[in-house]
């Protein structure tokens, strides 16, 4: 399979710089640490926020960080797409007989980004027994679903981001609210930010669909069973993202810029 072959190529390439690889991995691990420190300091002072305890917030933080780092590692091509346009690599992609999305996906896989993942796993290992959840098979299933849904939403955001690159490079900074902001603020269950932000993150950018709602179900704070399945709806965010991407490609081939 082409994707696996690309993955191997990237791995092989990055292993050429072993020291640098290790340094960046550690750097990524420690960089994410300040986000954890923030939660630690604030939760030590206030103990609960909107009814969530410290381990419960940590569980949410771990889910978001885990899915973000997975998405960032494997969808790095979209995340750094402005570079792919700028250096002409996208022209090359267009003269190859595969779909452009698939090729961009294969174009860049950065395993150093997994440094964050390591931290997410450690936090999760702490949070799982302390969150007060009785872990039955269905709860574990939903936790996995949350992570996968998170990967889907974040990767869709990266695709959206890449699609916007076709129209404006300058305006891109705004997308950081949803990607980096989604990671930073998504450390807390979205309801913390109030009703309107929750609505926005439910109907516009579906960040809440893979953390807040299923989390409520995990923590037995709701009896609405369908909350457990909202990550699936969140994954549908790929559709509008792909639409923007298509429009972008269309614009690119008609303006050549």
């Amino acid at each position: 399979m082409l994707y696996l072959k690309s993955l191997l190529i990237h791995l092989k390439g990055q292993m050429q710089y072993k020291m640098s690889f290790v340094f960046l991995l550690i750097g990524q691990f420690l960089t994410a640490f300040s986000a954890f420190l923030t939660i630690y300091v604030l939760m030590q002072r206030f103990h609960t926020v909107k009814g969530f305890t410290y381990p419960q917030v940590l569980l949410c933080f771990a889910v978001v960080l885990l899915s973000f780092s997975l998405a960032e590692c494997f969808f790095r091509g979209f995340d750094t797409f402005s570079g792919i346009i700028a250096n002409g690599q996208f022209d090359r992609i267009l003269v190859r007989p595969r779909s452009a999305v698939y090729q961009v996906l294969c174009a860049k896989i950065e395993l150093t980004r997994l440094g964050r993942l390591l931290q997410a796993v450690l936090v999760m290992v702490y949070a799982i027994p302390h969150s007060g959840v009785i872990w039955t098979a269905d709860k574990i299933g939903v936790l996995v679903l949350m992570i996968l849904g998170g990967v889907a939403v974040f990767s869709a955001l990266f695709v959206l981001y890449a699609g916007i690159c076709f129209f404006t490079i300058e305006g891109l900074e705004f997308m950081n609210i949803f990607t980096d902001g989604g990671r930073e603020f998504g450390s807390y269950p979205i309801s913390v930010f109030g009703e309107s932000v929750l609505k926005f993150c439910t109907y516009v950018i579906p960040l809440a669909l893979f953390q807040y709602y299923p989390l409520l179900w995990l923590l037995d704070m709701t009896d609405k069973v369908f909350y457990a399945f909202t990550p699936l709806i969140g994954a549908l965010f790929w559709l509008p993202a792909l639409l923007v991407w298509r429009l972008g490609v269309k614009n690119y081939v008609s303006t050549g810029s």
């Binding site: 050429q16 690599q89 022209d91 090359r92």
Partner: peptide, 28 residues
């Protein structure tokens, strides 16, 4: 068609050329 842009490389930078060729084989 085959396209060569003299100023831009289509090879994967950090891996042996043969690996690039094999990947191209799979792409095409």
């Amino acid at each position: 068609i085959g396209v060569v842009f003299g100023q831009r490389s289509q090879l994967w930078w950090d891996v042996p050329v043969i690996d690039s060729f094999e990947l191209l084989r799979d792409i095409y």
